[in-house]
Design a protein around this nucleic acid. Sequence first.
DNA 1: ATGCCTGCAAACCGTTTGCATCCAC
DNA 2: GTGGATGCAAACGGTTTGCAGGCAT
Lengths: 153, 153
Amino acid sequence: MSCQTDFIRELRERGFRLTAQREMVLGVLHEMAGFATADEIYRRVHALSSAVDISTVYRTLDLLQGFSLIAMVEGGDGQRRYRLLIDHVSHAHLVCVACGAVTGAGLDTLQPMLDEIRSHYGFVVDPGHLNLSGWCPQCCEKQAVKASLSHVA
Amino acid sequence: MSCQTDFIRELRERGFRLTAQREMVLGVLHEMAGFATADEIYRRVHALSSAVDISTVYRTLDLLQGFSLIAMVEGGDGQRRYRLLIDHVSHAHLVCVACGAVTGAGLDTLQPMLDEIRSHYGFVVDPGHLNLSGWCPQCCEKQAVKASLSHVA
DNA sequence: ATGCCTGCAAACCGTTTGCATCCAC
DNA sequence: GTGGATGCAAACGGTTTGCAGGCAT
């Protein structure tokens, strides 16, 4: 619930209003384990109260991003996925380009590399948006199958 | 030009046809230094021959992806960017979430990390699609300015 | 009472697809 | 000649925006 109070405090401090819709979007994000698309979030909010529009979901997600309370990744399927950033900041995200699944990975092993990139290229990798594209174990296998097939065909 | 022959050979082997449009798309990709959006590619091809459609560009890009001859990254702006994979395989891509700029980074320093991810999570990061999101030096500065402003507002 | 937020619906933009025509094979 | 490839245009799906009304402040 700490995120809830963070959110409300941020809202108040910046002169935004607290509405039932914004609470619901945050609530849904809070009870979801991993990443979710805007539409998935919309559906769950809509189940709570049918009078919530998808545009409000997007606007609230924008707001939450502005507060750095959520992370956003671009899936390989053209859909964006969102996730709350409550003490998940120290995680990298392994995004499967085949099925869109997102797995968490400890950031500690990656930190030396990020520092190296920073000093080499002046490029600051955002730890909250550190997304590595590739294949999850399941799709990795499928990919191997597909590759062998395309050699035949 | 080696990519050209690779492409033609792949086409022939798989029973696809060699057309002027496909050659032009490949040619444009070849003469471009970095990543480009489908629209940028389209404009350059269209400049060569006005009778080329954007849909053909997309279809050719799909084809090239099928042959693993190009890499695709999802920019933070919702546009996909493409790039030829001629001896550029050993590069990671630093994608700026603010301006969409893509910088290359040597893969050698990152390889140990990729191996670790593979053994830890069974997740195979695709070296050809290794995209790290963050801020390029220019936008990094702007971001810092914006952050300080939002504290005031 | 004020004006920020909302729902509605339409616009938007990148991408995909159906179909008649065309051309590489 | 045949079927894959193309151009055209319309559809598509996720996201954004304009606007009149509603509700938190």
